[in-house]
Design a binder for these strands. Structure first.
Lengths: 226, 226
DNA sequence: CGTATAACTAACTAACTAGTACATACATTG
DNA sequence: CAATGTATGTACTAGTTAGTTAGTTATACG
């Protein structure tokens, strides 16, 4: 007997389950906002796609904009949790960069809705991120990881000394985000699907090469010779 | 006497000027769609910001969606015209790459509305580009230019032989587009404005270095030694 | 048990929004 | 200078959309 709730053994739509109601609204809203943007998404449609009613959206979230912010908060905290799991401390700096880059690459590929939400939020000048207390002060595990790798690489004389963590993070993100975020216009214009599985390994290696070549290039200053 | 009659040469609101009416609607619509997206933009507001009425939008463009497509067409053809003016044929391949990269960089920086429209269009899965006959078959001067540079660079034994023009174009675009398109969320999270004039030269040089280092790196094949 | 409260539903509304009907002024040309 | 099509403005409408009102039902807890 696969009972879902303590007292109800019926497999019927669980009558009362605030936890599930809330998270179902969030899940559906994530899809809708990511698909159509803030202005394009419809509260009525979000409600219709859940097993509950529109009233519940207002009950739990207070309004369309707050729901959108809740969606952003969930998306960002989820991504950050994943980033925190990355462990490359045991790897040689160059290998660690390659691994971090590959993981970021995989990550963006497997979370297109997140990338879409970020694009949408940029169209809104990041207004909602700034307004959200949760998001405004969210730590960035990927950047911390990268900072440690760069420190190790510099100490070992492997990496250029003027490499800035935020810049390197930007490089990696730029490539990985572009590939997903601009997939459709790029394909319409160049007739090339940047997410074609046949080209996946090629692009994953390319961004790794790119970053490593940058990091191991001379910075024009007296560097400790290997 | 500021007469508005047919024969008045006065600088007063030109009574009849279809050319101006049309282009004014397009200019205002470009700003509105770039600012708020397709769903977020309001036909009434676009009309209010022109010197004409909503009726004229329907008269000239037929509807909101067609107006949006017209905006895209104008934006893309304008950008393509600029790209066509790039002349780097007289430069050494490496210098040509640096110049093309710098021009692309400048270009994206000075056309944020275009980048926004591209982001918006990606949110719409490039549906309108595909529908537009003008856009679907628009040549890409930047890619042609790049292809010729790469050919010259390979012939001179300066560039790796497996460098693909579309891939290289993608690299350049990724960096330049990301910097503009993701400016707001990036700044909200990392407290760094990627468009800060103080960092402009740094980033312009960085993308140039990045691409050149990639192109001059060994491709693991027997290459003509310099 | 019974009652307070949290979870929930259905129906409604006021405001907005894309698009249109209709009337008319202007300009070109025969 | 008539007449005909182009360009334009005003006022309207039908449909949509975020948000609300007024309640009902389940559950926890004394």
């Amino acid at each position: 007997m696969a009972t879902q709730t303590p007292e109800s053994p019926a497999a019927a739509p669980a009558a009362r389950d605030p936890e599930r109601t809330r998270s179902e609204i969030l899940a559906v809203a994530t899809r809708e906002f990511a698909d159509k943007g803030f202005a394009g998404a419809r509260v009525d449609e979000i409600a219709a796609k859940t097993r509950t009613t529109k009233r519940m959206i207002y009950y739990y979230f207070g309004g369309k904009e707050n729901l959108y912010i809740a969606v952003l908060e969930l998306a960002y905290t989820g991504i950050r949790a994943l980033e925190r799991q990355v462990d490359v401390e045991h790897l040689d700096p160059a290998e660690a960069i390659r691994r971090l880059t590959a993981l970021t690459f995989d990550h963006h590929e497997s979370h297109p809705d997140f990338i879409r939400l970020v694009s949408i939020e940029n169209i809104h000048y990041a207004r909602h991120i700034v307004r959200s207390e949760i998001l405004a002060g969210l730590a960035n595990p990927a950047l911390d990881t990268l900072t440690r790798i760069l420190d190790r690489g510099r100490a070992a004389g492997q990496f250029r000394r003027d490499a800035d963590p935020i810049d390197v993070h930007m490089m990696i993100s730029a490539f990985c985000v572009f590939r997903t975020a601009n997939r459709y216009t790029f394909n319409a214009i160049f007739k090339r699907d940047m997410l074609d599985p046949a080209r996946r390994d090629h692009y994953q290696a390319m961004i790794g090469d790119l970053v490593l070549e940058y990091l191991t290039a001379s910075d024009g200053r007296p560097a400790p010779t290997a």
